[in-house]
């Protein structure tokens, strides 16, 4: 199709009790745990969007996340998504009213799929991202949906769940391959392609990014609309800038 719509590169930041964790290695930053400062850094690097994953275990931590969202929204001129700990329409309201552009739902949507309808009905589909943790299961010959941070297998298969989520109003799918996550040997191209071709909304590939070529594969073969990575950016194994300039050379449209 004729379009200059770009493929998006999305760094993901884990936030715990209001602080970015996983030891981001930026000597240039005054405070590498400050979500606002890191967000500004990635914005300057050319990130197209950001995802914040709240991994706080406590109620206080979740409250702090609202302050983080407000501070990020005040300083950042690119869109960002917040996931983690969102279980109800009230939770969505809290995060979106604080200035996030989208919320991502994972376990809560699997446990009660009507939550997607409620969120999309209230805020519009563009605000609702469904995060799916997928793992290949030989016994069923396809990918199975996992919940609770990848700890619990469910009875759902990924393609069917993705389609149902979109029918219920999801505006985007954030698809993480548990098989590839942390391996740095590339995104799961087969999984990404299968989901991207099954749904009518954009798909974000996640899990397995190790170098710039992996992004090219995710876009060209995996038909992903966006690709997310965490550690390779945080640990400076590559940068958003490097990935984008490589993609440009390979004929992938990026900003």
């Amino acid at each position: 199709m004729d379009s200059m719509l770009t493929k998006r590169i999305i760094p993901c930041l884990d936030v715990k009790e209001g602080r970015v964790v996983k030891g981001v290695q930026f000597v240039s930053l005054r405070d590498a745990g400050d979500p606002v400062e890191l967000a500004a850094f990635y914005d300057k690097e050319g990130a197209d969007e950001l995802v914040f994953l709240d991994i706080s275990a406590s109620h206080e931590g979740r409250q702090t996340m609202v302050d983080v969202v407000m501070a990020v929204a005040a300083s950042l001129a690119i869109p960002f998504t917040v996931g983690g700990g969102i279980h109800s329409l009230e939770d969505m309201k809290r995060i979106l009213r604080a200035g996030a552009d989208k919320v991502s739902l994972n376990t809560a949507a699997v446990l009660r799929p009507e939550l997607i309808n409620e969120g999309a009905g209230y805020f519009g589909s563009q605000c609702i991202v469904i995060a799916i943790d997928a793992k290949y299961d030989e016994t069923i010959g396809t990918w199975r949906v996992y919940t609770h941070g990848g700890r619990k297998p469910t009875e759902r298969d990924v393609i069917t769940w993705a389609k149902e989520a979109v029918e219920r109003g999801a505006g985007e799918i954030l698809l993480t391959s548990m098989d590839c996550d942390g391996e740095k040997s590339g995104f799961n191209v087969d999984l990404t392609k299968a989901v991207s071709e099954a749904v009518t909304v954009p798909v974000i590939a996640s899990g397995g990014a190790g170098n710039a070529m992996h992004f090219e594969d995710a876009f060209k073969e995996g038909k992903a609309d966006a690709a997310l990575a965490a550690s390779i950016f945080h640990y400076k194994e590559t940068s958003v800038k490097e990935v984008k300039s490589f993609l440009k050379q390979q004929g992938v449209v990026v900003r």
Partner: peptide, 15 residues
């Protein structure tokens, strides 16, 4: 599109 190719809706991202 005009060539019968399908595309994603919403139009989401940087254009």
């Amino acid at each position: 599109d005009r060539n019968g190719e399908s595309y994603k809706v919403p139009h989401m991202g940087w254009n």
